[in-house]
Amino acid sequence: MRTIAPALLLALLAAAPLAIAQEGRAFNPIARPAARPALPDGAVRVTPPLPVPRERVEAAVATVAKAWSDKRLETVLAPGFQRRAELADAMQAKVPRDASLRVTAIQGWQVLDQWRLGGTLVSRVSVTVRTQVEFSDATGFQARDGTNEWVMTIRMREGGP
């Protein structure tokens, strides 16, 4: 189905009040994935990717939420996470001490890339998560809703329990 991408909608929203008319065929880009990163030595890409069970995704999301609430988010960040220090500072300076992150819904997920390495199935998964940050301040209980995309690496031992 021909869907107008969110990016296009954002472009329309940002359009100047006076748009200049134009004619002729326009370039309508086809969405394509970014170039896949190189796999680790010895890894074999799985194409098409195998589905990741819901319970694995739920467990992974719960692990992240708990790490956030316990103020030890750095333990689950990937080694190459961009602006890692800035995030750590924000967690210390801006997040209330008693704040906790509660997952209210997992809207869906998609396997971005997948490979086998030494009997382990490694999946890079994009998960859309609805969250609620809960804390108390001088005016009482507070809750802040959010919708996030988390990109996770989930490792599952094949043939295991």
Binding site: R56, A59, A60, T63, V64, A67, L73, V76, L77, A78, P79, G80, F81, Q82, L87, R124, N148, E149, W150, V151, M152, T153, I154, R155, M156, R157, G160, P161
Partner: peptide, 11 residues
């Protein structure tokens, strides 16, 4: 089955 998790991006 073991699960190891790395959060690559958030927010």
């Amino acid at each position: 089955m073991s699960v190891r998790l790395r959060l690559a991006a958030a927010g």
